[in-house]
Design a protein around this nucleic acid. Structure first.
Lengths: 130, 130
DNA sequence: TATTTGACTAACCTTTTGTATACTGCTTAC
DNA sequence: GTAAGCAGTATACAAAAGGTTAGTCAAATA
């Protein structure tokens, strides 16, 4: 039995799936969520590190994103007090569960991008390659 | 060789993937895109049909969504003149390419939903089930 | 002939999202 | 002791997305 979203299913089932879809799009949506996640894959970072790594993000937005990412279990905020006070953010193992979703999205996005590009101005592309 | 997005890759590669991701999220993002697509899986529909099916969408937004979906190749606008003028919207075969993406998103969304729910107020859930 | 339906568009308003700039309180470096 | 770094918060503003109401023009219906 293969699962197809786009097919005849009951209305309840369908709205359930739509909600799940909405949730998923919500937690990874927005302009910066994925940038933050990806920045943290290089290793734990502190607030100002993150802001420097992610060029263009403001402190306010970064702060909000980190809070939401924490709520959703992707990111952990670690407070060290040992030599001196210091706060780190790290990705949780849970964030790995996004892997298949992100891969599909990237795969489709790349395909779509090249499709759209090949439809528009294919002549120009040929000329440019001369 | 398995493809992992979250791993050590070059900066160029990474921004390429991020762009693709952005594209993908853009074309299926927004409040109504998927509603429209799903409404059309039941069969071709006319403008006012769609507006009735998708409760809550306004004519303005529906019109915009249809235009974007057309631009992205998901939807075709068919103008009949035969018995009388009549306009239909139909899903293209290209829209099927979204299938794997949507499935992953739904799968993850459902998983995440139940995870979040089980973290919050598990006591209440128990009480409620008595 | 008057009303309804279809397929929209236009003008305007509200909400959400993101940006810019400044500021805080604390600690460390020069 | 002044400056700079850390980890943010506060305030104000701009842009984008979405909602509301009304209106168009043509054809079909009552």
């Amino acid at each position: 039995m293969e699962t197809k979203l786009i097919q005849r299913i009951s209305k309840v089932e369908c709205t359930g799936k739509l909600n799940a879809l909405g949730d998923a799009l919500y937690v990874i949506g927005g302009k910066w969520k994925l940038h933050v996640i990806i920045a943290l894959t290089e290793g734990n970072k502190r607030f100002n590190d993150l802001q420097r790594t992610i060029t263009g993000i403001s402190a306010r937005v970064l702060s909000n994103e980190l809070k939401e990412l924490e709520l959703n279990g992707f990111v952990k905020r670690i407070v060290h007090t040992e030599p001196n006070v210091l706060i780190e953010y790290e990705l949780t193992p849970y964030s790995d569960t996004l892997q298949p979703v992100l891969n599909e999205l990237v795969k489709w996005g790349e395909m779509h991008r090249s499709k759209i590009r090949s439809e528009w101005e294919p002549a120009t592309v040929l000329e440019a390659s001369l």
